[in-house]
Amino acid sequence: MKPSAFDYIRVDTLDEALSVLADSDLEAKVLAGGQSLLPMLNMRLAQPKALVDINRLAALATLGRLEMNLAGVATQSPDTAFLEVGALVRQRQLERYALEEERTRLIHTALTYVGHPQTRNQGTVGGSLAHADPSAELPLLFLTLGGTAIIQSTRGERQVAAEEFFQSYFTTAIEPGEMLTKTLWRLPVPDEGMAFKEYRRRHGDFALLAAACTMKIGSDRKVQHVRLGLGGLADTPLLVDEVRESVGEHWAKERARAVAEAVVNRLDFADDYQASSSYRRQLASVLIATVLDAAYEDALAKEGKHGVDQG
C-alpha cells in the first residue's frame, strides 16, 4: 500500500494552481484535505503523475453569508440568502459555523455524519463535492438545498447549478484542467422546516441510505415549497420529483407514505451482501416517510413561532 511515484507541486496562488492543472503533460490531481485521495493513492487505485497541493490558497477558504438571489442580484430581502463556501473550507470549520444559527442547522446535522471529527478536521467541502461519492452527505445536501458551483480554469470562470453538478459515480461537471473554487448554498428561509436522516451500520460509516428534506408551509398549513433529496440509492444523489405534487396541499402522514410508496416503486434497489434489495426498499420507504414527516413537524414548530413573532 505505497503509492507509485508522483511529482509534488505546492502552489501559493490560484493562478499557479490553474496553470498546473492546464498543463496536460503534468496530469496533476488536486490535493486538498486528501482524505479520499491519499488512500486511493496508497491502494494504487489512482496513479496521478503529479499532485498540486492547494492548501496554501487562503482565498479559497472564505466562509460567509451572501445576500443575493440566484441571478446574482443583490437583494434586501432577509429571506433570500446564500452561504458562500470556499472549496478549501474544512468540513469541521463549516460544521462549527453552521451550528451558530437555525438556518444552517441542516448543514450542521448532515456534517456530523461525515466520517469522524478527525477526518473532518482535514477534509474539505470542495473536496467532498468534487469527489462525488454517491453515498456522501455533502453532495446530497448541496443538491437538496440547491445552489451553484463555481468552477475555474485558465480559460476563466463558469457556474454550474447544483442540479447539474453531479453526473455519475465520482463524476461531476468539472472538466480536466478545471478546479472547483467555491460553492454557493441556498439557505432555507427562517421558517422552513428541515430534516436529515441517515441509515448506516456503524458510527462514522458511509451511509447505506440518507435523506434530506426542507419544507415550507404557510399559515394556512399548506405546503408552499418542499425539496427532498436521497443519497446512496443511485450513481448520484437524487432529487425526488414526487414531492412537488404536495405543493398547495395540506400535509398529512398518509402523504408521506404515499410519496415513499411512489418513489420506491419506480426505483431499482441494489442487492448485495450488505443489504438485500428487499431490505433497501424497506429502508428507503421508512426513510422517506420519516424525513418528510420530520421536516413537516419542524416547519409546524417554526411556523407557530414565526406566526407569534410576526403577530
Binding site: 456503524r202 458510527h203 462514522g204 458511509f206 451482501y273 450488505q274
Partner: peptide
C-alpha cells in the same frame, strides 16, 4: 457485524475496514 464475504469466484468482497465491520466504541 463481522463476516468475511466471498463471491462464487473466491474474491473477498469486504477486504478493507470500510466493509469489514469491526465494532467501534460507538457500537
Amino acid at each position: 457485524f463481522e463476516e468475511m464475504v466471498y463471491d462464487e469466484e473466491g474474491q473477498l468482497l469486504n477486504g478493507s475496514f470500510m466493509d469489514y465491520l469491526c465494532p467501534t466504541v460507538g457500537e
